[in-house]
């Protein structure tokens, strides 16, 4: 009965789209064979790229999946990331250079952002004089080379002009999100230097699913998965 009213609804709408019932769609889904080892690789790739080193080690043992990167390098990378997240930028820079000095040498933008973060931390800690000195000696010469660096520098130094930084227009620089942004930039640069992709594949595949469903919507009516977190098929005849 539900099917009939569904079809009537479609005819009323004058839709020319192909209609695929839940039953037919489930048959198609059953024809798709996903290899377990491929799913395991996908999960391993996520653990490794996101830096879950212990979990990656356990997963290797429990599933027999080999990681696509030397697990020991994850620990170093996560230490750098954490240092930035906690505001220990000087420490982070040192650690990056220990890992591979080329990373900062070949990434002037990353190096500038790290130095900028260092300046932000000095200002946060009320070390005004030290901050000014650091800005003049380390950051200003780079601003002369590059217009966008200069603008960033001006924005950051502007923090010093406000008594109450929580209410000033550049206050967002003091947010946690700024540290996270810088941390993820360093993380990506280290991964790239290790010939590894900087992003895990899983989120890209999830986006691809959303995209593929949107594309198919133009041509067909079929059971979609609306909520990725439950992976539940919606019944097109129920709507």
């Amino acid at each position: 009965m539900a099917q009939v009213t569904f079809l009537v609804k479609l005819i009323m709408r004058g839709s020319s789209k192909k209609v695929i019932t839940k039953e037919d769609w489930e048959k198609r889904l059953n024809d798709v064979k996903i290899r377990k080892e491929d799913m395991n690789k996908l999960v391993m790739n996520f653990l490794v790229t996101e830096g879950f080193v212990d979990a990656a080690e356990k997963f290797r043992k429990e599933s027999g999946t080999e990681p696509d990167i030397d697990l020991s390098t994850i620990t170093d990378r996560m230490a750098v990331k954490k240092a930035v997240q906690c505001g220990n930028v000087e420490d982070a820079i040192e650690k990056v250079n220990d890992l591979n000095p080329e990373i900062l040498d070949t990434n002037p933008q990353l190096f500038f952002h790290l130095q900028q973060q260092r300046l932000i931390e000095l200002i946060r800690n009320g070390k005004v004089e030290e901050a000014l000195e650091f800005a003049q000696e380390e950051l200003a010469p780079r601003g002369e080379e590059n217009q966008s660096f200069l603008e960033e520098l001006e924005r950051t130094v502007a923090l010093l002009a406000f008594e109450d930084v929580s209410n000033c227009p550049v206050g967002d620089l003091l947010d946690m999100s700024q540290r996270l942004k810088t941390a993820s930039e360093v993380n990506a640069a280290i991964l790239t230097s290790q010939s590894h992709e900087k992003d895990p594949k899983l989120p890209s595949l999830l986006k691809m699913l959303v995209w593929a469903q949107n594309q198919l919507d133009e041509k067909a009516i079929y059971p979609r998965i609306k909520d990725l977190s439950t992976a539940k098929l919606e019944d097109p005849s129920a709507s």
Partner: peptide, 19 residues
Amino acid sequence: YLERLLRQLTACCLERRSL
């Protein structure tokens, strides 16, 4: 859940191509 999402992705891509 992961497998269900990947199956849906594969099926959508195949159906779209066939149309």
